[in-house]
């Protein structure tokens, strides 16, 4: 009797093992199928990503509250400690800015009269939305953030994302109430830029690290650490002149850029629609993610 029961248990164990092995192999096959779908049908995968992101962002909104509150209080405390020095620096800056204001007003009136002489067509005005950063999906394997504004707020794919410091990235997927922003440090990010005073053109390429690199730099260009990098406006993906960062290191032909926007301080961003058609509407490399 006991031997019969033991036999039954062994048979059950073998059956369970077989089922488990079958499940494992089937799931591995499905995983490879998903990889192929991800490469072939980007629209379907993008829809799935948008749906999941929209569902998760309300939870992230709640989860991110404590971390945001702590970061804000630390920032407040630091500001309080440096308030005297900051005050005198601001006074100096204010004096300088007042001088600049006078110059700007003069130039503005001059500009206006010159524009009327040339009958210049004005650039379209940009519409923007501000949003809170609730998700940072970043790591070695992808670099994007999730923000609390989506299509219902007027956000669209390709919108340029900035802070007061400079360029953050651009909208990769716009859900109903949330959006995914591809950061300039992401391995899929390619941005046409201008470097330094000599106006050298190059492409800023992310590699999922903290410092993106410059590629396709002309042979006779002279780029040195400290040079400012701004968007060039080529390919109409970004408007010209948005500050991106500074050249941090030039070594063995590798030019690393330190972005102006420090990722760990990102709490709010501005999503701007410049009305640019750009390369984003084409099904290019950027649409792959």
């Amino acid at each position: 009797m006991a031997r019969q029961t033991t036999g039954q248990i062994t048979r059950l164990g073998t059956l369970k093992n077989l089922l488990q092995r079958f499940a494992f192999l089937s799931l591995i096959a499905i995983t490879f199928a998903l990889m192929l779908i991800g490469k072939a049908d980007t629209v379907l995968v993008e829809r799935a990503r948008i749906a999941i992101t929209d569902a998760v962002v309300p939870i992230l909104r709640v989860l991110s509250q404590p971390a945001n509150a702590i970061a804000e209080s630390i920032a407040n405390f630091r500001e309080l400690a440096a308030i005297r020095e900051q005050n005198s620096a601001l006074r100096d800056a204010n004096e300088q800015l007042l001088q600049w204001q006078a110059i700007a007003q003069k130039l503005e009136s001059e500009n206006r009269s010159l524009k009327s002489l040339l009958a210049l067509v004005p650039e379209p005005t940009a519409a923007f939305v501000s949003a809170r950063v609730v998700g940072d999906t970043g790591g070695t394997f992808a670099q994007s953030i999730l923000v609390t504004a989506g299509a219902s707020d007027g956000v669209g794919k390709g919108d340029v994302v900035t802070t007061g410091e400079g360029l953050v990235g651009r909208v990769l997927q716009a859900g109903v109430h949330s959006s995914r922003v591809l950061l300039i440090t992401d391995i899929n990010s390619r941005i046409p830029v201008i470097v330094g005073e000599g106006a050298n053109r190059a492409i800023l390429v992310g590699d999922n690290g903290l410092r993106p690199r410059l590629l396709y730099v002309g042979a006779k260009t002279s780029i040195a650490p400290g040079d400012k990098v701004t968007t060039s406006g080529d390919a109409e993906a970004f408007p010209p002149g948005i500050p991106v960062g500074r050249v941090a290191r030039v070594q063995d032909g590798v030019i690393e850029i330190e972005p102006f926007v420090s990722r760990d301080k990102l709490q709010h961003v501005r999503l701007v629609n410049y009305g640019l058609a750009g390369i984003l509407n084409a099904t290019g490399a950027e649409a792959r993610k």
Binding site: I30, F32, L34, M35, V45, R49, T53, A142
Partner: peptide, 24 residues
């Protein structure tokens, strides 16, 4: 295995890593 697979796919969709890579 089903649980690990589901978590992997969810992570790929949420994080933005190539679909299937985390699941695998």
């Amino acid at each position: 295995y089903g649980a690990a697979f589901a978590i992997g796919v969810l992570e790929d969709l949420l994080i933005g890593t190539p679909l299937g890579s985390t699941a695998l």
